Simulated assay, not measured.
Amino acid sequence: MEEAKFDANFLTGQAEIWQLMFAFTGSMALKCAVQLRIADIINSYGKPITLSQIASHIIDSPSAEISYLERIMRRLVHKKIFTAHHSSEEGDTLYGLNETSKWLLWDTKPNLVALILVENNPWMLAPWQHLSHCVKDGGHPFEKAHGCDLWNFASKNPELNKLFNDGMGCMVKIFMGAVLPAYKDGFGSIGSLVDVGGGTGGDMYEIVKSYPHIRAINFDLPHVIDTAPNYPGVSHIGGDMFVSIPNADAIFMKSVLHDWSNELCVKILKNCRKAIPEKTGKVIIVDVVFEQDNKDAFEETRIIMDLVMLAHTTGGKERTEIEWKRILEEAGFPRYKIIRIPAIPSIIEAYPI
C-alpha cells in the first residue's frame, strides 16, 4: 500500500488547528472530573484505582456509565491531569493522581475547584460567543450575552454571585501564599489597611493572621459584603469604590483594576489617593504585569487572562508596565515599584509623592 506524502508543515498546521478548535473538550472534561469528584475518589484510596472503583463512589449514581467515564478519563490522562498504567495482575487500567490533579481535590486547600466551576458555567461561557461581534461593532461580550455587566448580573443572581465569590475565594491562599513572603516588609509598618474590592474578605484575613496589629477593613459592593463570613480582626464595609473609599494608611487591591478600563482605573486610584495620607500612604496592587521576556510557567496564562477580561468585564484588560505607569501617573501616583512573585500577578507598590 503506497503511503501518501505530505509536507510536514502542512500536517503540523492542520493538527494544531484541530486541537485548538476542540480545546474546549479539555475544559469540559476537567469540569466533569470536578463535578464527579474523581480526584477525591482516587485520593480516598491512597493509590491508583480502576474505573469500576471510581464509578462505585460517584455520588448519587447507582449505575454510572463506565464507558463514558473511560472516554473522559482518556482525555484527561492525555492532558496529564491524571496518570494511567496497565495492571498486569488484573488486566485493568489503574488511574492515579499527580501534581496537577491534586489541584482538583475538593477537601484539600488550596485548590482550583471553585474557579473551574464558575469559569465553565454556561453564564460565563455565553459571552465568548460574542467576541467577533464586539470586534466588528464594539461593546462588551458579557453585556451582549446577558444584557448587563457581570456585577449587575451577579447582584440579581444569587447562584452566580456565590459561584463567583467562591471562585475568587479559592485563589486567596494561592496568590496570598506568594504575596505575603515577597511583601513581608511592606505590611509591617501599616497601621490600617483597606482591601478595595476584597470580595468576602479572605485576602484581608490572610494578611491579618500574619500581621495582627493591622486594623483591617474589607470593602466591596453591598451584595458581596452581605455574604461575607466573620473573620477575626476584619471589619466589612459595603460601598462603591467609584464614589469613595474608607480612609486608611494604605490600600490593598488584588485582581481588581484588571476588571476595568484605563479611565475607570484612574477614577478608582484617585479615590484611593484621597483615602490615604499624602506623605506616608501607599497603594498595594496585585495584578498582572505583562513582560516580553517573562517566560515563566504562567506566560500563556497571563495571555489567556487578558482574553478572560475581554469576555467578562466592561473594558478590563491585563497591562504592561508602560500601561500601568500611565494610569498611575494620571491618578496622582508618580512613583511605583514592581515586585515579581512566583504567581500569575506581580505586586505594584504605588506612592502619592
Score class of each variant (00 low, 15 high):
Met1Leu: 12
Ala4Met: 14
Lys5His: 12
Ala8Ile: 15
Thr12Glu: 14
Ala15Trp: 11
Met21Val: 11
Ala23Leu: 11
Thr25Ser: 13
Gly26Trp: 15
Gly26Ile: 10
Leu36Pro: 06
Ala39Ile: 00
Asp40Tyr: 05
Gly46Pro: 01
Pro48Val: 02
Ile49Pro: 03
Ser56Phe: 04
His57Trp: 09
Asp60Ser: 08
Ser61Thr: 11
Ala64Ser: 10
Ser67Asp: 10
Glu70Val: 10
Arg74Met: 15
Ile81Tyr: 10
Ile81Ala: 10
His86Phe: 14
Ser87Asn: 10
Leu105Asn: 06
Val118Gly: 04
Gly139Met: 11
Gly139Trp: 10
Asp149Ser: 12
Asp149Cys: 11
Asn152Arg: 12
Phe153Asn: 10
Lys162Asn: 10
Phe164Asp: 12
Asn165Lys: 06
Gly169Arg: 03
Cys170Tyr: 03
Cys170Arg: 01
Val172Phe: 06
Phe175Lys: 05
Gly177Met: 02
Gly186Arg: 04
Gly186Trp: 01
Gly191Ala: 05
Gly197Cys: 04
Gly202Ala: 00
Tyr205Glu: 00
Ile207Ala: 02
Pro212Phe: 01
Asn218Gln: 07
Ile237Val: 14
Ile237Tyr: 07
Met241Tyr: 14
Met241Thr: 11
Val243Phe: 09
Ala248Asn: 03
Asp249Leu: 02
Ile251Lys: 04
Val266Ser: 00
Lys267Gln: 07
Leu269Tyr: 03
Asn271Lys: 02
Arg273Phe: 02
Lys274Tyr: 02
Glu278Met: 04
Val283His: 04
Val286Glu: 04
Lys295Met: 09
Asp296Tyr: 02
Ala297Gly: 03
Glu300His: 14
Met305Ala: 08
His312Ala: 12
Thr313Asn: 02
Ile322Tyr: 09
Trp324Met: 05
Tyr336Ile: 02
Tyr336His: 13
Ile338Ser: 07
Ile341Cys: 05
Ser346Arg: 06
Ile348Trp: 11
Tyr351Lys: 09
